[in-house]
């Protein structure tokens, strides 16, 4: 079987005559295996010459090391913090014990359903976010099992409505579908176009994670919220103290 190896190299290196090139390209258009071979050889040639990519990989590896080291430092800090908290917990165990794990208790203390626009603490209204009255009413009545399918189908039509995403996530949390809540909140947390909701998104994300008992993950996010010094900063600090 013909391997075309020399032609492939010559083609990639631009060494074929115009007639040879045309013939080769005709062959390429009808021979998928040959096409794949050419792509692979092109990758081989280019990979050796992509100095910028090699440099980027090195820098990314370095950033990974920086990240890992800071994580170790943070874990140490959290461990110290946790040790101190455990000591406090023992000291006040009779006061604190109510039969539930601590993270559940904290969740219950801090979780509140989403305030539908117009009733928010900031009064900053985003008119594009207004939802149909029917959905708002059911949500306000705390009929979460009923409102979930409505919000899901609404979001299929309007996937960028942040208010609807927050309502759906909290409805998931209320109905113990915490992983689903975490998933949509995680994605929303990357959307920096709605600054008004950024902190709130992280806050609900923390609570959804906390409810699942993932205390270490929650601590990392709580530290982030605390460092951002926003509305939830003090609450984040308070939870960190309790954990």
């Amino acid at each position: 079987m013909r391997t075309y190896s020399k032609q492939i190299d010559d083609y990639i290196r631009g060494k074929l005559t115009p007639i040879e090139k045309k013939e080769f390209e005709n062959e390429l258009s009808t021979n998928p295996l040959l096409k794949k071979k050419v792509e692979l050889c092109q990758d081989l040639h280019r990979s050796a010459m992509e100095g910028d990519i090699i440099s980027l990989r090195e820098k990314l590896n370095y950033s990974h090391i920086v990240y890992s080291k800071s994580k170790v430092r943070r874990i140490r800090a959290i461990s110290l913090f946790a040790a101190a908290s455990i000591a406090l917990l023992f000291a006040f165990r009779f006061m604190l014990m109510d039969g539930s794990p601590n993270h559940e208790k904290i969740f219950r203390e801090h979780f509140e359903p989403f305030q539908i626009i117009g009733e928010t603490r900031t009064n900053q209204q985003d008119l594009t976010s207004l939802l149909p009255d029917e959905i708002n009413k059911i949500y306000k009545k705390k009929e979460y099992h009923e409102v979930i399918p409505l919000l899901e189908s609404y979001l299929e039509q309007y996937p960028n409505n942040k208010q609807a995403i927050l309502m759906l996530s909290t409805a998931y949390i209320e109905t113990n579908r915490n992983e689903k809540a975490e998933q949509i909140l995680l994605e929303l947390s990357f959307d920096s176009t709605k600054i008004i909701y950024n902190e709130l998104t992280k806050w609900y994300l923390v609570l959804s994670i906390l409810k699942q008992g993932k205390v270490d993950d929650a601590k990392v996010l709580l530290l982030e919220i605390k460092e951002e010094k926003g509305f939830y900063s003090d609450k984040a600090q308070s939870i960190l103290n309790s954990l």
Partner: peptide, 25 residues
């Protein structure tokens, strides 16, 4: 794929690297 190729290219001795680089160019 390119990462894989590049990692193996880097393992070649310096003479091979130079020759292949000139050839690829």
């Amino acid at each position: 794929r390119k990462k894989l190729f590049s990692e193996h290219f880097e393992k070649l001795d310096i003479e091979c690297k130079r020759i292949l680089m000139a050839f690829f160019k």
